[in-house]
Design a protein around this nucleic acid. Sequence first.
DNA 1: TTAAACTTTTATAAAAATTTAATAAAAGTT
DNA 2: AACTTTTATTAAATTTTTATAAAAGTTTAA
Lengths: 417, 417
Amino acid sequence: MGAFLAMEEGYLEKLNHVERKKYLQKIKIVRHLYVKGARSNADICNRFSISSPTSMALLNELMADGLVEKQGRGESVGGRKPELYGLRNNSLFVLSIEMEKFSTRMAIFDGTNNNITGIHTFPLKLSKDLSAVEELYQHASSLVLSTGIDADKLMGIGLSMPGLVSSREGDSYTYLLTGQDETPLQDLLALRFSKPVYIQNDVKSITLAEHRFGAAQGKRDVLVLTLDWGIGLGIIQDGKLRVGTSGFAGEFGHIPFIDNGVLCHCGKRGCLETVASGSALARMAREGLQAGQDTLLKALSDQEPEKIEPQAIIQAAHEGDQYAINILAETGRNLGKGIAMLIQLFNPELIIIGGKMAEARQYITTPIQQSINTYCMTQLRERTEIALSKLGAQAGILGPVATVMERIFEHRIESTK
Amino acid sequence: MGAFLAMEEGYLEKLNHVERKKYLQKIKIVRHLYVKGARSNADICNRFSISSPTSMALLNELMADGLVEKQGRGESVGGRKPELYGLRNNSLFVLSIEMEKFSTRMAIFDGTNNNITGIHTFPLKLSKDLSAVEELYQHASSLVLSTGIDADKLMGIGLSMPGLVSSREGDSYTYLLTGQDETPLQDLLALRFSKPVYIQNDVKSITLAEHRFGAAQGKRDVLVLTLDWGIGLGIIQDGKLRVGTSGFAGEFGHIPFIDNGVLCHCGKRGCLETVASGSALARMAREGLQAGQDTLLKALSDQEPEKIEPQAIIQAAHEGDQYAINILAETGRNLGKGIAMLIQLFNPELIIIGGKMAEARQYITTPIQQSINTYCMTQLRERTEIALSKLGAQAGILGPVATVMERIFEHRIESTK
DNA sequence: TTAAACTTTTATAAAAATTTAATAAAAGTT
DNA sequence: AACTTTTATTAAATTTTTATAAAAGTTTAA
């Protein structure tokens, strides 16, 4: 298998046209089996428009390569039961790294997308300088070592981080800056790890996770909103993540929303994020407390007045606190107005709401829906479903896995053309 | 050629796998030659990853079918000059129909996208009932007859109309309603014309025209804004028109923009269209005149106070009228704020501004740019170019041609799979 | 319940199609 | 004029597909 998937420098260049075509077909079959699970020979024939003997020959080669194995018989559809071919267990692994501003999480996933290590958290801070690269490598190495899996079997590494990320260039424009005309971050990491590395913005990464593993599975036009301190948006159109020309699409939190509004941390005034995010919610709570509102939050604020977190407000709402419910509703109404714009612009079939704020459940979704009803054209809103994320906190660590799934085969397919 | 491109009922079903594959390859070559113009054999080999003898055989078949012909020699790149293969002149024609609320335009285009009939205008009104279908057919028939071209050579018909159109279903949700569970408009027309018909919303159709023939050629992430009485938006992402799950994406004119604003014709209040469109401009002008503003528009309004058209205001601005310039600037600033949202959400490389309002040129673009600078994140706006449409009024009639180009081959390719 | 008839899958051999390699002709460069 | 590069064509080698048969399972009907 080493020889086949590893794709050493110059490996592809040595192949002639027929061999490249065969390599391409094999990669596509592997992707198919990875994404869909074990499949029959007949299924592969149909999927790729090749004849049964050809498909059989490719599968035999993949079995000889050690990548594919027979995995029992499928259900009969009126005749002989088909042999099922699937990826060999323990033959493919993916390392997922989720970097946040103040901590970093890692986990290793197997070929059937099971987390085999649990989530390891490190207090690794995300800054502009590159020192984190080496630290990341050390943590990752010892994690891989601890599992005892063959380093050869680690197919690739996915890395998600906040801020502006150009996934095409493989570079961040906010953190771990390599400098202009320098090797992009992704290539730098790939060199250090000797593995393909794919970086992606955190929200876009979560969006891929929702599309691959969550409520957006099989949907073609989906928006994923992540509501934490800020507001994130991931866009799936015609079944693919769309990131725009530089990879920065989806800056929904910073659209102009309120005239002469509060100063946003982005430097502008009145961004949506100033009235519809976790930080907006916290600000409303602080202002309410200062104005002498009677609420469960008082107890909290007496201890640490500046440390009111959205989650405490959500908690209070679930305990029936009227003020918390009110400010959540205001946040939701603002957000809903923003979402109404999104529905009009993107005409999605589904909008998934995730992030910590999603834990407010009906206290946020009801006012959102109310705003949508007010601000959205009937024909559009009637065709849009709003749902809460099922993946929840898992989405963050599954994101890089989905990113690797999306890119590792594409990358190979591209370089074969 | 009749047999080849016509695709009679059941033609494809008769083919075995190899024949279907060959048919698919030939269709793809024809599309390539149609979109790119005459090409060499070597180019086709590279483009489709097939060997020279195979490609030559396919081209020979296409020549025997009467679809392709040799069209001279290309430039040498250091050796023998390549033979160029192109679509036979006068072998493919497209009928373009542009329906507006109060009139309908038609023209026939040849295989190199030249308008061979000029634009014929009919006072055909767009309503909910289907009586227009027969009228359309009669007009079209006599137009085709007048050119003397073989009806067989009419490849397809493109039809654009305002309102909600589901291009996938081939049905309008605003005009020419066929009723639920009835044959969609597109199929109804296809039956009457005995030709493939493709319908599309007017703005999306224009967007395709800009992408195929205008300033968006070769670009991958483009937004096209049409500014007339209303505001239209067409979205190209990753090189393709994106229309959303029901085909209604891009309802930019009716996003909520002003709290408690003017009543919009859509029924809601404060839509962007109420402060940033041609009708908003006309309203501002009327209000200004009533308030006694001193402006060149006075002369006009004295005659027909209710008939101030955006074009008159633009004209006045070009003549130096300060009031006209001011209200255009206000319209532009509002629009610019909306465009700032679009840039943040879509991260396009180019935004094309078309429609009659584009004739205001710097009087509209300068305030637009000013708003973008105010409301848009630096990293995003720096990577976005704003340009005026070069196609201008031509875009409307070229749109259905681009729609046919986009769909007619896809349609055949789909049904081969 | 059992056996025959029918489907689907798998395997293999013959037929067909495609690619590669080889070659000649054409066009440009030194 | 000699050499290089590219195109176009033919023949040989390879690959893919089709056709066929056997194996395995399901359904139908006695």
